[in-house]
Write a protein that binds this DNA or RNA. Sequence first.
RNA 1: GGUCCCAUCGUCUAGCGGCCUAGGACGCUGGCCUCUCACGCCGGAGACACGGGUUCGAUUCCCGUUGGGACCA
Length: 446
Amino acid sequence: MNNVRVRFAPSPTGALHIGGVRTALFNWLFARHHKGTFVLRIEDTDQTRSTDESIRIILDGMKWLGLDWDEGPFRQTERMDIYREHVDRLLKQGQAYYCYCTPEELDVRRKEAMAAGRPPKYNRKCLSRKSPVEGRTPAIRFLSSDEGQTIVRDLIRGAVTFDNQQLDDLIIQRSDGLPTYNFAVVVDDVTMNITHVVRGDDHLNNTPRQIQLYKAFGYEPPEFAHLPMILGSDKTKLSKRHGATAVTEYIDLGYLPEALVNYLSRLGWSSGDQEIFSRQELIEKFSLDSVGKAPSVFNPEKLLWLNHHYIQQADAGRLAGLVLDLLRKDGIIIEGKEPDNAWLRKLVKILTERSHTLVEMKTAAIPFVIDEIPMDEKAKAKHLTPDIAPLLSTLVDQLRAVEPFTHAEIEKVFNALVAEKGLKLGKIAQPVRVALTGGTVSPGIY
RNA sequence: GGUCCCAUCGUCUAGCGGCCUAGGACGCUGGCCUCUCACGCCGGAGACACGGGUUCGAUUCCCGUUGGGACCA
């Protein structure tokens, strides 16, 4: 395939959530696989809900995930002239008309239609209107063809047929002068030379209208690919009540971007039995042909497993830096009083195998760095009770003397210490174990 | 309500008419390793929604039913 151009077009009305990321990811993979172009477009025509803060969150999220774009970010609000031009064109061609009906009138008619068992479709009351209605600003409607069928040829679904009779004369420009979603997308995709529209399933029903618009402009429609949705554990659309859904939350929870990318790539797509994919493998193997049709349920446990996997794989220096950031954020470590870098790296290394997230790793690291480093009194009280403080302190000293810094060595030092002080295991073991494991050991084992 | 889409273990999925007494992964679970936990290793339970066709033969093709989802406001 030549000159593939795809886009990701989020609305900046909040966080960048899991579903959006998956759409972005598949577009990105498709572009990279075909050595095409990935365009980022911000759909911010809804000015009441769009914020610059949200745009920043989206861009940061994509950068964190390594989904780099080649063009953009373009903003729809900067393209109003282009939309007006296209509206004028349709008006001139007689394929659009002014509509003076108020939302209230439309609502009443819709309810009547529903009550009478008819589909709620605009009755074209304003199509034959010759003169403007005093004191009203009109919306503009597209005059859609209501005969025959429109066939959407979807790369994932196959041919999907819609009766044109079902299609409404959709509003392309609202009375406040703003273009509507379906219209703006078409104009944007055409003017940005998008060759493949890869987007969520929820837009499949909009596609026939959009195809009619393409035709009205005399443009060849792009290829379409509608991705199945991502659902929550109760099989309804993934939302906040299913837990963390925003990318920022996963950053805060201590996930690695490669884990999220790997997990999301396997949601609705597969390549045989393979579970673990490097970014390069993903690019090489990705194909829309192997995208499934059925929606898939988001499974946090599998993501956690992948995160654990990637933590084990990750470079110790990188992990040390990330854990250090978290320790600073918690006020455990104060700026300028960081522990020795090589030492921290060794510590991180022995914590990796039992950590599923960076946050777990941070928690496990606290007792080891807590000793000599000035810290918040509250945090100290929580993690370092008076009876175990001196013991941990000794333990840490001895650990620092040990080379190499392996789990086996820790055990050795630990046991020696326990023997020397004549301690009952139960007295110190649990706090230390908990420290080592980030709190995952069940109490009462010793 | 109308239109459209979807349907393999609890979950993600392999399967594109015979290789399937349905494979892998997460989770669950039994065991091994080990001074404990974790890691690792070896096992186990667990699915083709239902009913009709088509075919010598259907998880795989067609139709219907049921169930789920999306859009339309």
